[in-house]
Computed example of a mutant assay.
Amino acid sequence: MWCAQTSERVWRGRVLAALVTAAVLAVAGCGAGPGAPEAGGHGHGGQPRPDDAANTMPSEPMTVEALATAVGCQTSSPQHGSDFRQANCSGTGEKLVLLDFDTAKGQREWVDMSKAYGGVYLVGNRWTVSGNSRDYMLALQARLGGAIEQDTHGS
Rank of each mutant, 00 (worst) to 15 (best):
G43Y: 05
E94F: 15
A23K: 02
P61R: 02
L98G: 08
P58R: 06
H44L: 14
T152H: 12
V10P: 02
S114M: 05
H44A: 11
E65I: 00
W2M: 08
R9Y: 12
R14M: 08
A104S: 14
Q47A: 11
V27I: 14
G81S: 08
N55I: 09
E94T: 13
G29Y: 08
D83N: 15
G43R: 01
Q79H: 06
S76Q: 02
T128A: 15
G119E: 04
P78S: 09
Q47D: 09
G72N: 03
H44P: 03
E8H: 04
R143M: 06
E109H: 09
R9F: 15
N88D: 13
A17G: 13
P37W: 09
C30L: 14
D112W: 00
A87Y: 01
M113I: 05
E38G: 15
G131N: 09
V71M: 04
S59A: 14
W127F: 14
G93V: 14
A139E: 14
T56A: 03
Q150V: 10
M57A: 15
L19Y: 03
M62I: 07
Q107A: 07
Y136K: 03
C3N: 11
Y121M: 05
A70C: 02
K95F: 15
K115D: 00
Q141D: 03
A70Q: 00
P34Q: 11
H44F: 15
C73L: 10
G81A: 05
S130T: 08
N88R: 13
D151R: 00
G106P: 11
V97D: 04
G40R: 10
S155N: 14
